[in-house]
Nucleic acid binder design. Structure first.
Lengths: 213, 213
DNA sequence: TCCTTTCTTTAACGATCGCTACAGAACAAT
DNA sequence: ATTGTTCTGTAGCGATCGTTAAAGAAAGGA
């Protein structure tokens, strides 16, 4: 009953995603976006609302594609330790991949923001905090299963690994190789606590049930 | 023989520094700078050249003041390990201090940059790479003195601690407390290699001279 | 074929960007 | 007091910002 759009919305969104990934939210102009998406401003505004909603949709797409490895790793590994280690290793591979911009969009895309885009900055911060909370949940699981001492500071561990991942993102943006990032990941895993005080590094299995005192 | 300027150049530069620190290079407009500095644009351009040179001068001032603890720690501590540990601990204190913006200006101020400020981005990247190289030099010293095995991957260690520091900066910008950052620092130090293979964590002193095979 | 609808394009909106011409004000030397 | 120099404030430069009005173009239903 009406004219249909001449461009593929998903392709255009993907190109916007890559542009935001490279330069960040504020530093990416609508002119640069339309050039990358192959459309004119009215088409962008008709299909996506405005620059901010386009960005939010790009972030959602990022989480479902390039960034999905994190939630997959956290969901699929049997132990918290394996989950954290896999997140680190896959972050190293993803951040250094040359098939897309370096680093993590959610970590880097809204760092330098004026007051008018503070909401966008807050949105990504919430996503980062959610990722940190997801790390903590898996680590808590290892404590509950007796794989870690009951007095383990799981929030502190989650903060540490979140910081390492964010540092890996920055390093990759500065040109660090996949191997260099992997080495960061390996060194970070050496901070994982001993399963019982005194048994250095050996994971001797579950000696207690859940919720040890 | 002529009119003298009515504002304190150092005070104005300090206020520009704090503004750049908060919002970053591109996201800070000249209007915001002049408002913070208490001057009008012609005074800014007469005293500092342009926005980019003002930023470069602010970065230099940052390195000599807020950021000077890093080079001090690296210069003053007796061993590489002590130097790295002190950098981490003082970073935790500085990044979380509420007497100035959170995090590190050199890490955060030029993350989201359009093509026109790629040079500024490159400048800060060089400073970050120089800091990483300075870490490596101190770690190399521990290898040369026999405090670390001769086959230690010192570049990898330096990259790891650089990443941790950058992650601490990001965490502090997201609101992490001094205590949380200190815990990151402590966990990161547990990745420091054993002085000899087999002696877990114990630093048993120098057993060889310099340049062990 | 005409109508309706929604797309596309061109062009431009007001606001802000970094930056500066210009004129007046303040100081030092004469 | 006059002159010369450099500051300061106002006001505005051209360019770009995010966004949109207006008109032509393409599709389906009548």
């Amino acid at each position: 009953m009406a004219r249909q759009r001449a461009f593929d919305r998903e392709v255009a969104l993907e190109r916007a995603l890559l542009t935001f990934w490279r330069h960040g939210y504020e530093a990416t102009s609508v002119a640069e976006l339309t050039a990358a998406m192959g459309i004119r401003p009215p088409s962008l505004y008709a299909a996506f609302g405005d620059k901010r909603r386009l960005f939010e949709e790009a972030v959602r797409r990022y989480q479902e594609t390039y960034g999905a490895f994190t939630s997959r790793a956290l969901a699929e590994e049997p132990t918290g330790r394996a989950a954290v280690e896999r997140v680190l290793r896959e972050s190293a591979a993803e951040y250094a991949s040359d098939s897309h911009p370096a680093g993590c969009l959610i970590i880097t895309a809204a760092v330098n923001c004026g007051p008018e885009s503070a909401e966008v900055q807050g949105l990504l911060r919430e996503f980062r905090e959610a990722a940190k909370a997801a790390l903590k949940e898996r680590i808590d699981g290892d404590v509950a299963a007796g794989r870690l001492p009951a007095d383990t500071d799981t929030a502190g561990l989650a903060t540490f690994y979140a910081a390492v991942i964010q540092g890996m993102s920055t390093q990759s943006r500065d040109g660090a190789s996949h191997a260099a990032l992997l080495h960061i990941a390996e060194l970070a895993m050496s901070a994982w606590p001993a399963s019982r005080s005194g048994s250095q590094g050996l994971d001797r299995g579950v000696l207690r049930g859940d919720l040890g005192a």
